[in-house]
């Protein structure tokens, strides 16, 4: 009995000791992070850009095997908040920093430097079964604020409208609210109808659109596929309708487009600078086109 119990006890204690020593060795490894620190870049922010940043990181790490780039999504606000709390090196955002965020950054001793890395058109999408193929900004505003609740009020079928929006931490959500719901006028106070479904990501909007003929949503054109129909948008009935093609976005004909930004703390230096240079290089901008965004040049 004693031999047996002793044996069991050893089985119990040995793993603990192994874990402990593991922990200690991990600690020791982390004693000299200075060598690794400059190789590792943490990027955080916009979900719109997360796949783009991922593609850049993948290509950059292929060329620079010693570098380590961690990409995390969560929303533009997430990235900016992380930059302000110094938990990331680069914040990727699909909107500019708000004055309030600038103040908070200053208060925390952070000096955000803004870089435009790509352009994005916001596509307004519906299910391909939906006969609607064009809308004006006013109609969009009325739909998303809940004034229009049925497709028949915008020349469609007699079906309820299901609104799909992004979470409040999304730059896309904020941009859409400011430029569509409030029509670019900072004095207006329209909000998304509280019936709008706040989806955790652009992809989940795309998935829901693909299977729901009642739904309308919006996201960066990079997420569109043949299972959704992109609407042509006009400023009002007197203006022509435009689709978010690369030309229409570059020449400014398509109304809902925006720059995609990156913020670093201070002018980029070291590996961060190398990474940014890579992004702005023709090779980096080629990747932008590959993932269906619009290159800046």
């Amino acid at each position: 009995m004693t031999i047996l119990t002793k044996f069991k006890f050893i089985r119990f204690v040995v793993p603990i000791l192994v874990f402990m020593s593991c922990a200690l060795s991990c600690e020791r490894n982390s004693q000299n992070p200075s060598i690794q620190k400059e190789h590792s870049i943490k990027i955080k922010g916009s979900d719109t850009m997360v796949n783009l940043a991922q593609a850049w990181a993948e290509a950059f790490m292929r060329d620079h095997p010693q570098s380590l780039i961690a990409v995390t999504g969560g929303g533009s606000g997430t990235g900016i908040a992380a930059l302000i709390s110094s938990t990331c090196d680069i914040a990727e955002t699909s909107r500019k920093m708000k004055p309030k965020e600038q103040e908070e950054a200053k208060a925390n001793g952070i000096n955000p430097v803004e870089m435009t890395v790509a352009l994005d058109g916001l596509a307004v999408v519906v299910n391909p079964e939906n006969p609607i193929d064009r809308l004006t900004i006013d109609e969009l505003s009325d739909i998303f604020t809940g004034k229009i609740r049925n497709w028949k009020d915008v020349r469609g079928e007699d079906l309820p409208i299901v609104l799909l929006s992004r979470e409040v931490n999304s730059g896309t959500h904020v941009y859409f609210k400011e430029h569509i719901l409030r029509k670019g006028d900072p004095k207006r106070t329209e909000e998304f109808d509280d019936r709008s479904l706040l989806m955790p990501s652009s992809q989940s909007i795309a998935d829901e659109i693909a299977q729901n003929p009642n739904a309308i949503g919006y996201y960066g054109i990079g997420y569109s596929s043949p299972t959704q129909k992109i609407l042509a948008i006009a400023q009002d009935y007197n203006h022509p309708y435009f689709l978010p093609t690369i030309e229409n976005i570059k020449n400014g004909n398509y109304y809902i487009s925006r720059p995609l930004l990156m913020y670093s703390n201070g002018e980029p230096a070291g590996w961060i600078k190398d990474f940014i240079d890579f992004i702005l290089s023709p090779e980096g901008q080629k990747i932008v086109e590959d993932v269906d965004f619009v290159p800046i040049q």
């Binding site: 969560g74 997430t78 900016i80 908040a81 302000i84 709390s85 908070e104 979470e167 931490n169 706040l198």
Partner: peptide
């Protein structure tokens, strides 16, 4: 879960 990541401390 959806909003926590975003908030500034």
């Amino acid at each position: 879960a959806a909003e926590m990541g975003e908030t500034v401390q």
